[in-house]
Design a protein around this nucleic acid. Structure first.
Lengths: 205, 205
DNA sequence: GTCTATAAAGAGATAGAC
DNA sequence: GTCTATCTCTTTATAGAC
């Protein structure tokens, strides 16, 4: 992962030493997540890549552009969940389940960029645009919860907005501790979240 | 919960224009939360306070010290929850409920410093010490959940560690959207969290 | 307790050689 | 595609006047 660039066995195009944008982006996002975007200097990034700053600037225009590309990946994935067929028809509670499951899957598949997204504070235009898109996603889910309440499948003693935020509080918190390669995969993780979110942790007895 | 601010039990407040440590700390933590600790320069902080940097350095030794004092407040509060009588005896499920309720109350009472705590990444000794104390808190709660599972009051198809993390994922996410002065207070908020955590969002039907 | 002024280091970004 | 060297601005922090 953080290993040296390919030398001889180039996959497809380049047979040259050095990085391409994709490799640089992957390591960059990892470092952003370790230290925080603001606390990561371009010099530190270049060090981690085994490059100089100037070489890094050959691949990207700015530090902020690196952030923007990573955030686009995360947001694209999440927004795609809402476009999935399972989220488009049927009882609202089932669609909600599909959205939560899809969100967990995206989170696991794009863990680094989603982690970065969830830590964005709005310090620049790029960050504020990302926050806007997060809010829009949230509102779509809240509408789904409200519909499920109307259909009688979700409790109404807690508001739809709060329900949505609590559920995504659980989902989003996964980035704080979930690491791939362990016992649980995306499917098990989603099942756990849905079990707790839908039925709670208390036993019937 | 939080320790006494025994900076000076001394006489004579400064009846002078200007700030004392407490006022500076409050505004500082607020700005740290708005922009992020790393993205906040001491100059920006001083501007917000209507002071110069030099005046601010008269009150505090370093930017990091300001962070440390704020984190101590949040951690002291959370750790106090575990020392509360309601968390010390009785069925584990009841103690767990008391801990969650207490955590929400501390979060609401000390919203700025808890928010700051939850965003710490471990970039310095101060931050790493805070992360260690968070982990210790987490382990205490996980033990409580495990006990509740043994007592048959919490589902066992999800591990105690995951249950704990999901519940505190909900609790901690409150800092992302809860703002005092609205319709809900700490008690209602805690009730909502416990309702969802214990029984889930799905209606029986 | 606050100010102006400045030190010393680090930040993001660029120029031009190879 | 990467390098060395450098520009310019900002950063944390300090010195010393009032």
């Amino acid at each position: 992962m953080a290993d040296a660039p390919d030398t001889e066995s180039a996959p497809a195009r380049r047979g040259r030493p050095g990085y391409d944008r994709e490799q640089i982006l992957a390591i960059t996002v990892q470092v952003f997540n370790e230290q925080g975007y603001d606390a990561t200097s371009v010099a530190a990034l270049a060090d981690r890549l085994g490059l100089t700053k100037a070489a890094l600037y050959h691949h990207f225009d700015s530090k902020e552009q690196l952030l923007g590309v990573a955030l686009e990946r995360a947001l694209g994935g999440l927004e795609g969940v809402l476009r999935h067929p399972d989220a488009a028809a049927g009882p609202a509670i089932d669609r909600l389940e599909a959205v939560v499951r899809g969100a967990v899957e995206v989170l696991v598949a794009e863990l680094p960029s989603v982690t970065l997204l969830l830590r964005v504070r709005g310090n620049s235009a790029v960050e504020r645009a990302a926050l806007d898109r997060r809010r829009a996603f949230d509102q779509r889910v809240t509408a789904l919860v409200r519909q499920a309440q109307r259909e009688g499948s979700v409790r109404t003693d807690v508001s739809a907005a709060v329900v949505t935020r609590l559920i995504f509080g659980m989902v989003n918190s996964l980035v704080e501790w979930y690491r791939p390669g362990g016992a649980e995969g995306a499917a098990e993780l989603a099942a756990d979240v849905l079990a707790v979110a839908l039925d709670g942790i208390r036993t019937a007895g």
